[in-house]
Simulated scan of single mutants.
Amino acid sequence: MTVPSSIGNFLPDTAAWAFFFDLDGTLAPLAERPDQVRVPDTVLASLTHLQRAAGGALAVISGRPLETLDQLLQPLVLPLGAEHGAIIRNAEGRIQAPANPADAVRDLAAWLASRLDGQPGVLLERKSFGVAVHYRLAPQAKGAVQALMASALARFPQFELLPGKMVIEAKLPSVDKGRALLRLMQESPFAGRKPLMVGDDTTDEAAFRQANEMNGSSVKIGPGPSCAALRLDEQGDLEGWLGRFRDQTPYGV
């Protein structure tokens, strides 16, 4: 891990780069509950412009389920890496996903739910390919949640733990955002471009590394060490940076 440089005047050429964004804490401000998150209309407008300017080479890679991402990004319909890339939807709308471990996810979710019952402020989020436990409403429960998830991993070893901002997820070990970025970069309209990944959390580090290794770049939002090359100070700064693309190229491209 290093200290990323300030983003400064960096503004990649939309004809030569592909753009990848995390959602929570990146395109949208964090909220106390996952269901309270909203992508600002101004950010959606800037994404619409950037997608057109980049010839469609823009995707969102997030821990959120695919259906939730579509709801948060509407009216945009984008290529997606959902659930950290367990589900990939390419630019043509084709969906790729591993064999569904439905029984294991159901059993893990039920086991966690039985032990989280009565824990105020700790939220269980069920996904198709994993489970997330959020404690943003109960930061004092961090240690208890960490211990519980370690116990869950011992009982359900087919999963691995992925800590984030006030959340710990149990996911498939073959899934991460770096692999999602790589898979999308192998197809049109991303292929042949340089990737840029923008994110804010430890869950984005794999995608930062992948973008860097492909002669692209990466942007970490917020403080702290990261393998990202560049930094934006806070989530609200992204809107201004995206607006620079609208200044650079006409809206009608």
Rank of each mutant, 00 (worst) to 15 (best):
D35A: 14
P34C: 07
R179G: 07
Q158H: 09
A91D: 10
Q146P: 09
Q74W: 13
R231T: 05
A86T: 08
L50A: 05
P250A: 14
A211Y: 13
R246A: 14
R231L: 01
D237L: 08
R94F: 14
V77P: 07
L137C: 11
F156Y: 12
G25P: 12
S151W: 02
G178A: 06
S5H: 09
P223C: 09
V133I: 02
L196W: 06
R106H: 13
P225N: 04
L184S: 10
M197T: 14
F190M: 07
T203L: 06
I221A: 04
D35E: 14
D247S: 12
G252L: 11
S62E: 05
M149T: 00
K171S: 04
A144Y: 08
K194E: 06
Q186M: 11
A191M: 11
A228W: 00
V145L: 15
I7K: 04
F21P: 05
G121K: 04
I87V: 13
A45T: 03
E213V: 03
G178F: 09
T249M: 13
W17D: 07
Q74L: 13
Q74P: 08
Q36A: 12
R38D: 01
F156N: 08
K177L: 09
R183M: 13
R244N: 05
N100P: 06
V253P: 03
I168L: 06
V219K: 03
G56K: 07
Q119N: 11
T203P: 09
M214L: 15
P195Y: 03
P189V: 14
D237M: 08
G216D: 09
G222W: 00
A229R: 12
A104V: 05
T249D: 14
K220H: 09
A86K: 11
M197D: 06
Q74R: 11
D70K: 12
G121L: 07
P120K: 09
Q74V: 10
L230Q: 04
V60W: 00
R193E: 08
D204V: 10
G81P: 09
G130Y: 00
E83Y: 07
V131Q: 06
L27Y: 03
A152Q: 07
A15W: 01
A102Q: 15
E83G: 09
R126P: 02
L124Q: 12
L172V: 02
L30Q: 05
F129Q: 03
T2H: 12
G85Y: 10
Q140L: 12
D107H: 12
T42F: 00
E67I: 15
L123V: 01
A54Y: 00
L116R: 05
L69P: 01
A18G: 13
S218W: 02
I61Q: 06
V133F: 05
D204M: 06
T68M: 08
F156I: 06
Q71K: 15
A82S: 15
Q146R: 14
L11Q: 02
A211E: 10
V122L: 10
A109S: 12
F208V: 15
D22C: 04
W111V: 02
V219E: 02
F245E: 01
T68L: 12
G143N: 14
L116T: 00
L116W: 01
E67R: 14
I87Q: 11
